[in-house]
Design a protein around this nucleic acid. Structure first.
Length: 917
DNA sequence: GCAGTCACG
DNA sequence: ACGTACGTGACTGCC
């Protein structure tokens, strides 16, 4: 009944120090092609050095080496040049854009305190081979990081071990080779790699090898004859074709082998292998300066995490990697297949009363909670795991998953709750989510894959083996269980635990339900709209072609540039990387000058956008089973704490223009139901009032004044009793938002169509009128500069390291982000609280109403017609009381048969619904 | 896979 | 003198 899967040896001795050797040359070369186009704002190419640094960071985070070196080619001739004049002459030259990236790569290594090996007359791969040889004899476990397959000859399980991490595609997508992996891939021992290369040749080096014998044939021959030399000796035993080919190319093959053979005894000078990298760590100031120079913004955001980890090691503590080595996480696990065995497993797991790591096994790999097909479930506690195929899941296991008193940890609760929900199991008792926890710790990361978290926070290397999903899923469950404590410790020390437990965790379950509920979209309405849009576009196209004097792809900005600025010689405005901009701003300008083609293109663009993004795309996303559209509400996507929506994005359905707004007619309620929408009125400005404590702002909201009119009175100095014109109000509104976004006078002047001097004066008057605002902004920035992060009222963080940048532009951008995040983020916190409160109230009051969407400051519901006013009153109350402030929060509720026609509901304060609070 | 554009709060 | 608002996601064209 229990199938034991023994503890697999992965060849790592836990007490062995670990050495990483980067073949910088090959990494730069591969990185150059893996990642095209990247450059700084002055067009200095940085793609290869970016890839190199990405790899370096990833290695440092994941592998935590005790020692690390980077080997570069020395620019003088090497034995290989002397060996064969035609060798490097024939070789494709180093791309022009790659050469100037070598020095920055050396600088990067230096900034990270990674010693550079660069010896005259020695190529990088020979330095790597020699260093690996020395290190393995010194008792190091060696990992060679490269993009060059030749390095596989250095792999050695016996002594060392020596492994090779190979770039496969992209930058951080890598495969680690041990001897078995080399054999699986090539059918050969590592030592035979040069022989293989000799026969196969190397196209990029212009070495033909033996034409007519490919990789397969070569591998087969070497399996039999072991070496190229032996094969040549027995050449007469080969089939005629192969024999003739080999005889003709004997010299070339031997030469090619020799060139592919990595030397292991070149002079490297003094090298200190015992320099413990974990104690030294990167020179963060130097790294930051370099990243700023190279404009690596995304990498800059990764630094705070790395720096904190480095600090946490402390000076007195033993080197972290020696006490907590990076180890393959492979646990002993059982695969119970019947009810009795599952019961026994559960008994074992729950006896300890420790949280159990739960990981779902599903296909396809990048499924959403609506389309994941559930295959099984992995469970693990410290030291023991299990995998249960979904077809074997017993009632007891289901009951366990639904038991709120049994503590569990998952990685992505929203997903797990949604998928299990679709499979008839209501997941309860999840008291930790590693995915969301990592997001709270650093919302700036691109993603939170379990593999990365395991490496970063638990020092374990997690590999998913497609051929052994049972063991892999059990390993993942174990990693999840193991991540809970270190993540929890970090959350506690950063003051983020409450945010996780009180908001994000319960919210995940609500979001899963919203996604599963879906929104009803009438595909026929959209298909009709698409037809009409096509007709309107065709009309405009004819007119545009007539003015242009030819037909062209209006959607191509390149072609459009040619037509407008070359052919028609219209005055060009702003420039961008590819030439003159054809953006709406520019076109509106041209239209204002009387160029009809511009306004027609603007109109065409609007229709084109509506047609492709909404009218055509949405019907295709209607789920055939549910008849609804199920967006993903991403919980870990934004750096401010907001949700985002994708596949489709339902948070950007048109509303601002009449024709765009028509799309909303297709968003309807289920049969017999209506839509109820409730949105916060000016929540960000109200929060701004609360957070700045500015008496003027606070009083305005306390008195329920129109804030924009009030601002207009102040900045235009309009006396009481005299009316504010609508234009003055509009301008004041712009300034109100501008201040929240930290905008410049330039932008305000463009927005308002006034001179920069006037705009600047308006902003000045604004800040003088609301003195609390300036004080607040100064305090936020001081705080950000001191701590490196800003936070919301509930403690949610955003790291903004660039507030201390010496580069004016980056610093300014970071300051705007820092100024805006507390407002945008607190607003996000508050609507999340409101969602929880309303969701609970719907359950408690046993309403049929369902929450179907969140759009940042708006919640959308559908409910039976009879429930409308009860629901609206309850939602309004819940949202307004979600988080008490010095100023009131106001919510307007509306209802309608579709999202287009929703109209305000009056006098909801009089509705009886026994509020909970 | 990037760049440009544009939909939303 | 510089460059010019916060946060998202989707689509088209082009390399």
């Amino acid at each position: 009944m229990f199938r034991r899967v023994g503890l697999q040896h992965c060849g790592y001795n836990l007490h062995m120090p670990k050495l990483v050797i980067l073949d910088a040359n090959s990494l730069l070369y591969r990185g150059f092609f893996a990642m095209r186009y990247l450059s700084t704002s002055d067009r200095t190419p940085t793609n290869a050095v970016f890839a190199f640094v990405m790899m370096l960071l990833t290695i440092l985070e994941r592998e935590k080496p005790d020692a690390i070196f980077a080997a570069f080619d020395h620019p003088t001739p090497t034995f290989r040049h002397k060996e064969l004049a035609s060798y490097k002459a024939q070789r494709k030259p180093i791309p022009d854009d790659l050469k100037p990236q070598r020095q920055p790569a050396r600088d990067a290594a230096a900034a990270f305190n990674v010693p550079v090996i660069e010896v005259e007359g020695v190529e990088a791969d020979d330095a790597v081979g020699t260093l690996a040889e020395i290190a393995k004899n010194e008792g190091f476990e060696v990992l060679i990081v490269t993009g060059d397959g030749d390095a596989l000859q250095l792999v050695d399980d016996e002594q060392g071990p020596v492994k090779v991490m190979m770039m496969v595609k992209g930058v951080t997508d890598t495969v680690i080779y041990d001897e078995k992996a080399v054999r699986d891939r090539y059918g050969l021992d590592p030592s035979q790699i040069p022989d293989l290369k000799g026969i196969k040749g190397d196209a990029s080096d212009n070495l033909p090898g033996v034409p007519g014998i490919g990789e397969k044939g070569a591998s087969k021959l070497l399996g039999q004859y072991k070496t190229l030399e032996e094969l040549i000796y027995h050449v007469d035993e080969l089939p005629v074709k192969q024999r003739d080919a080999l005889i003709a190319h004997t010299d070339g093959a031997l030469l090619c082998k020799r060139l592919a053979t990595i030397l292991r005894d070149v002079p490297l000078g003094d090298i200190d292998l015992n320099d413990n990298y974990q104690e030294t760590g990167p020179d963060f100031a130097a790294v930051r300066a370099l990243f700023e120079k190279l404009e690596f913004h995304t990498l800059l955001r990764r630094l705070p995490g790395l720096e904190a980890a480095q600090r946490a090691k402390g000076g007195a503590a033993p080197p972290a990697a020696l006490t907590t080595p990076v180890t393959r996480s492979q646990i002993e696990h059982s695969v119970p297949t019947n009810a009795a065995a599952i019961d026994a497993m559960l008994a074992r797991f729950t006896a300890a009363n420790a949280p159990v790591g739960i990981q779902l096994h599903f296909t396809p790999a990048k499924a959403t909670l609506m389309d994941a097909s559930l295959k099984g479930v992995g469970l693990a506690i410290d030291g023991a795991g299990a995998y249960v195929d979904w077809s074997n899941v017993s009632p007891a296991l289901k009951a366990y998953l639904e038991d709120a008193s049994k503590p569990k940890t998952v990685h992505d609760l929203k997903f797990a709750a949604g998928v299990l929900g679709r499979n008839g199991v209501e997941l309860r008792g999840v008291t930790f989510d590693t995915h969301v926890a990592a997001y709270l710790l650093n919302a700036g990361r691109a993603g939170y894959p379990l593999r990365e978290l395991a490496a970063d926070f638990a020092g374990t290397e997690l590999l998913f083996d497609e051929d052994d999903p049972e063991s892999s899923v059990a390993d993942e469950a174990a990693a999840i269980a193991a991540l809970r404590e270190p993540l929890m410790a970090r959350l506690e020390s950063d003051g983020l635990a409450q945010l996780l437990f009180d908001i994000e965790l319960p919210l995940a379950v609500v979001l899963a339900r919203i996604e599963r509920t879906g929104v009803t979209v009438d595909g026929d309405i959209l298909k009709e709209a698409s037809k009409r849009l096509a007709e309107l576009m065709a009309g405009l196209e004819a007119e545009i072609y007539a003015i242009a004097g030819e037909e062209f792809a209006i959607g191509s900005t390149k072609k459009l540039q040619e037509i407008l600025f070359d052919k028609l010689k219209l005055p060009a405005g702003k420039k961008n990387k590819t030439g003159y901009s054809t953006g709406a701003e520019v076109l509106d300008d041209l239209a204002a000058k009387g160029h009809e083609i511009a306004s027609k293109i603007v109109a065409w663009r609007e229709l084109s956008k509506l047609k492709s993004t909404y009218a055509d795309a949405l019907p295709a996303l209607i789920n055939p089973e549910t008849g609804k559209v199920h967006t993903s509400l991403n919980q870990t996507a934004t750096s401010t704490g907001r949700l985002s929506s994708s596949n489709p994005n339902l948070q950007n359905i048109p509303i601002r223009t009449e024709v765009g707004r028509e799309i909303r007619k297709a968003f309807i309620a289920s049969p017999g139901c209506v839509l109820v929408s409730a949105d916060y009125s000016q929540i960000e400005l109200r929060l701004f009032a609360h957070m700045t404590h500015d008496p003027g702002l606070v009083q305005a909201f306390a008195a329920d004044d129109d804030i924009h009119s009030r601002t207009a009175r102040l900045i235009f100095k309009i006396p009481e009793g005299q009316p504010v014109t609508s234009d003055q109000r509009r301008q004041a509104k712009t300034i109100n938002f501008a201040v929240i976004y930290g905008a410049s006078a330039f932008r305000v002047s463009a927005e308002l169509g006034v001179s920069q001097a006037v705009a600047s004066e308006l902003i000045k008057t604004y800040l003088a009128s609301y003195p609390g605002v300036r004080e607040y902004l100064e305090k936020i920035l001081d705080d950000a500069r001191a701590k490196g992060f800003v936070h919301t009222m509930l403690g949610r963080r955003r790291y903004v390291p660039e507030v201390n940048s010496t580069n004016y532009q980056f610093r300014q951008a970071a300051e705007r982000e820092a100024a805006n995040m507390p407002v945008q983020g607190t607003s996000a916190d508050i609507i999340k609280l409101a969602m929880l409160k309303v969701d609970k109230a719907l359950t408690d009051q046993k309403l049929a109403a369902k929450m179907v969407l969140q759009v940042h400051d708006e919640l959308l519901f559908e409910c039976p017609e009879s429930e409308v006013r009860t629901l609206a009153a309850l939602v309004k109350e819940g949202m307004e009381s979600a988080f008490p402030l010095d100023v009131p929060l106001r919510v307007e509720a509306k209802s309608g048969r579709n999202w287009w026609e929703v109209t305000p509901l009056e006098d909801l304060d009089e509705v009886e619904f026994s509020p909970q609070s």
